[in-house]
């Protein structure tokens, strides 16, 4: 062992011995100091002056500048990078779906009539109508809708919606609504629908009659051939055929 090592050990020992009283004081007074600090914090938080001070800080241009700076700065991009890189949104979404949170939320909203009120308000707004018409007339929307409809993700989502209780609840609510049946009655009694049904019915009857006609004439021809074979009629015109005006072929 060298002289340097001996000196180092000596210094450590001396320091340890010197800190011993400080550690003893720390163990003795730390709990009471912590309690005193928390009490002081509580008094500060309960103070009306603190509330006024916080309000003034929040209303000050300083906070606004700070938030603007944060939003415009690289922090937002960094957070977005982290969310995307670690698939945070996907994980949260999967957990929300697995726990049935979405279904519970929707059921609650539907039961409270929030959805109905919101939809009524939105649909009554003429700006919404104009927006929908403009959007629907866009070529880009058509392309996008086609791409979305053909995507496997959409298939999975539709399958999941069909399997969920959400659809059952929605259908039950819909079937229970009086407006729906009034609308169905109105549509069913409309001239266009009754005309279409009548046309379809007559078309079907005509199809059946056509089929019967074809089969009956086929049977007639078969009977003709059979009777000609039985009576050995040969060299005569085809079955059931003759010249008009009652004339017979030469």
């Amino acid at each position: 062992m060298g002289l340097a090592d001996t000196a180092t050990d000596l210094a450590v020992s001396v320091t340890r011995e010197a800190m011993r009283p400080a550690r003893a004081l720390d163990r003795r007074f730390r709990p009471s100091a912590q309690r005193a600090a928390l009490d002081a914090l509580d008094r500060v938080l309960d103070s009306p002056v603190t509330a006024i001070a916080v309000d003034r800080i929040l209303q000050s241009p300083l906070v606004e500048r700070a938030i603007t700076g944060v939003v415009a700065g690289p922090l937002v991009d960094a957070v977005a990078d982290v969310l995307i890189r670690d698939a945070v949104i996907e994980r949260v979404s999967a957990e929300v779906v697995r726990a049935g949170v979405a279904e519970r939320v929707v059921e609650g909203l539907v039961a409270d009539g929030v959805v109905e009120r919101s939809l009524t308000g939105v649909l009554a707004d003429p700006r919404v109508e104009a927006l929908v018409l403009t959007t629907l007339e866009s070529d880009r929307v058509e392309v996008l809708v086609g791409a979305v409809a053909d995507s496997p993700g959409m298939e999975r989502m539709v399958a999941r919606v069909l399997e969920s209780k959400l659809l059952d609840v929605g259908v039950r609510q819909l079937l229970a609504s009086e407006e729906l049946w009034e609308m169905i009655d109105e549509i069913a009694s409309s001239k266009a629908v009754t005309d279409a049904i009548a046309h379809q019915t007559m078309g079907l009857a005509d199809e059946v009659a056509d089929e019967v006609r074809i089969r009956s004439r086929r049977m007639d021809d078969w009977l003709d051939r059979a009777t000609r074979r039985a009576t050995r009629r040969r060299g005569q015109p085809g079955p059931g055929q003759d010249l008009p005006g009652g004339a017979s072929p030469a």
Partner: peptide, 16 residues
């Protein structure tokens, strides 16, 4: 050529 007149057979007449 003279036109051919199809005479209706027994089955068709029976259905009618």
């Amino acid at each position: 050529p003279p036109s051919v007149v199809p005479y209706t057979g027994l089955v068709t007449r029976a259905i009618a």
